[in-house]
């Protein structure tokens, strides 16, 4: 029997439907769980925190949701080795909850996805992200090739990785940068980074490799119809592009 994935809906989440659909199209047994049903969460095998503006992003993106009752099950699950994926706002929540990068001695935020630079505005832009760790470093990326390029959409106002120097060094040394922003040809330079994120980071992973926080949305470029110009031979309704990443996640869950 395949493992059950919970897609969490906080008040203010807005990307739950497409996240759910792509997980399902990639073979995942995924279900939405709303905040008033938090009690159901412990029985799930994996957790996906989708994009949006949970609790209106008051204080700082993800800061309040990180303390929501729903996070009890996520934190317990993460510590027990369940796979946890956060996309965009979900990624911000995982950082605020201290699950990622997890460079401290206790669970506590040591880095944040914060206000974009150089201008502090929301941006919506198509991007490519490149796998920056050994695929096997995380069960979530184990289905990808070395240096795999994934298309996605950056759509955030607070996506710039920021931490103090010591923690940034730890993040880099500890192989916590799971994906970096890249050009479509795979080259990496500052102009590929849409938000001045430190280390060019688009995604972070914890030390154990079971919790991954990715800022851009692979699910918004997840089917061939999302990119009619470069669809190749895929049928227009087939999962494609960003689905590569979701497939790898689902494989990791079902393993």
């Amino acid at each position: 029997m395949s493992k059950r994935i919970a897609v969490l809906v906080f008040p203010g989440t807005n990307s739950e439907e497409e996240t759910l659909r792509l997980l399902r199209d990639c073979g995942g047994d995924a279900h939405l769980v709303h905040w008033s049903r938090a009690k159901l969460l412990p029985q799930f095998d994996a957790y996906v925190l989708p994009g949006g503006f949970a609790y209106e992003d008051r204080i700082r993106a993800g800061a309040i949701a990180a303390h929501d009752e729903m996070m009890d099950a996520v934190i317990d699950g993460a510590q027990a080795g369940k796979l946890v994926l956060g996309v965009c706002n979900g990624a911000q929540i995982l950082l605020e909850a201290g699950l990622v990068p997890g460079t401290g001695t206790v669970r506590r935020p040591t880095a944040a996805f914060t206000r974009n630079g150089p201008v502090p505005h929301f941006i919506c832009r198509h991007v490519w992200v490149k796998l920056a760790i050994e695929p096997k470093r995380s069960p979530i990326t184990a289905g990808l090739k070395d240096g795999e390029l994934i298309p996605a959409w950056a759509a955030h106002g607070e996506g710039r990785l920021a931490a103090d120097e010591a923690h940034l060094a730890q993040i880099e040394r500890g192989g916590h940068v799971a994906f970096v922003y890249a050009h479509r040809d795979g080259s990496v330079d500052a102009s590929a980074i849409p938000n001045q994120s430190a280390l060019g980071a688009a995604a972070l992973v914890n030390a154990q490799g079971n919790v991954l926080a990715i800022m851009p949305h692979p699910e918004r470029d997840g089917w061939a119809f999302n990119h009619p110009d470069r669809r190749g031979r895929a049928g227009i309704l087939e999962p494609s592009g960003g689905a590569l990443f979701f497939r790898s996640f689902v494989m990791g869950v079902n393993r």
Binding site: N14, S15, E17, E18, T19, R21, L22, G51, H121, F122, I123, C124, R125, H126, W153, A155, H217, E219, R220, D221, G222, W223, F225, N226, P228, D229, I236
Partner: peptide, 26 residues
């Protein structure tokens, strides 16, 4: 201007803002 608008949330966008004269969804 339109970079400030989310043009792809819901995952149904076929043609986002700027890629053609009209936007398109599935």
């Amino acid at each position: 201007l339109y970079r400030r608008y989310d043009t792809v949330v819901r995952g149904a966008t076929v043609i986002p803002r700027g890629a053609a004269d009209a936007g398109m969804l599935a």
